[in-house]
Nucleic acid binder design. Structure first.
Length: 298
DNA sequence: CGCCAGGTGCTGA
DNA sequence: TCAGCACATGGC
């Protein structure tokens, strides 16, 4: 057990904003999950992060890196605090940080995310880990590591479908083989320009615009990436009340409007609009707030 | 019990 | 370039 300083940080917003699928909230208020393949429990006490792991190789430095605590969040948020909606999102979820996740786990997870809901994505990934990962026990918590691309690559599509992956089974298998056979490498994409990283990701089957941006942002430190899903498209109606906007035009706008950390803006907006429904008790007010933000009220 | 979900690939204009 | 469509599934 050790603790590290975490100024300007919200563990709950960071782990529950939909960027990661393998953390579970504990009755104690903390979370159990994984960092760089090590199982771990974390809990926030003010501006300190309490970390519990049996694996001594999980150093404070690795944990701080995973949670991106080295980045100057105040500066990032100042750069994207450029309109009223972004301002509200930041005010509501301040401390949310974009994690530095393992790019392969990120890629596989978001291939599974297409045309799907978060609850089921979590279940699918859990079954994938149970079937192909390595069992690890720790202090009353037991789980399975995320399987390597090499292991997933040798699974049959039928076996993957049996885990409930549906039509994504073929995509995942195809992409796993690409990596396992050395025809595609993720790690080098961390150091190249955003456009180049995205173009490379698009060669994977099951990876389109949205998934490529998620992997670039959550796994490759490409903070310009701006994943556009259904919820963000709704949020963007705030800027374009009635115009028809293609995803390409939304991307161009986001890049110009939010700048180098557009990905942070995306994540704050995504978390913000999704939580508007549970934000207030009064359902009438709730509907008003939601409609207003989504640009549905004339 | 219908509706919906962090979309993608394919086809045809 | 872009609209239209099929694709599997289970949580809510």
């Amino acid at each position: 057990m050790f603790q590290i300083p975490c100024p300007d940080f919200s563990l709950a917003d960071t782990l529950e904003c939909g960027q990661t699928f393998r953390w579970r909230r504990l009755p104690t208020g903390g979370y159990a999950g994984w960092i760089e393949g090590r199982t771990v429990k974390v809990r926030q006490e003010g501006s300190a992060l309490l970390v519990e792991s049996l694996d001594s190789s999980l150093t404070p430095g690795r944990v701080a890196r995973y949670f991106a605590l080295d980045l100057n969040l105040a500066a990032i948020l100042a750069s994207i605090d450029v309109d009223a909606q972004a301002h509200d999102a930041i005010a509501r979820h301040r401390g949310l940080r974009v994690l530095r996740q393992d790019p392969w786990e990120c890629l596989a997870s978001f291939i599974c995310s297409s045309y799907n809901n978060i609850a089921r994505i979590q279940g699918m990934i859990e079954r994938l880990c149970r079937a192909y990962g390595v069992s690890v026990g720790f202090n009353g918590y037991q789980g399975y590591t995320f399987p390597t691309a090499e292991v997933v690559a040798v699974a049959s599509e039928r076996e993957l479908r049996a885990l409930g992956l549906g039509f994504r089974a073929g995509y995942l298998r195809s992409t796993a083989r690409l990596i396992a056979e050395g025809r595609f490498a993720l790690e080098p994409l961390r150091g190249v320009r955003y456009a180049e990283a995205k173009a490379a990701l698009l060669h994977c089957e099951g990876v389109g615009d949205k998934v490529a941006d998620c992997v670039a942002l959550f796994g490759l430190e490409q903070y310009e990436a701006f994943p556009i899903d259904l919820w963000i498209a709704r949020a963007m109606r705030y800027y374009f009340r009635r115009q028809k906007m293609t995803p390409k035009r939304l991307h161009d706008f986001a890049a110009k409007h939010f700048g180098a950390y557009a990905g942070y803006a995306q994540q704050y907006l995504y978390h913000y609009v999704r939580n508007l429904r549970r934000g207030t008790q009064d359902s009438r007010l709730k509907t008003q707030v939601k409609s207003s933000v989504l640009g549905l009220v004339s």
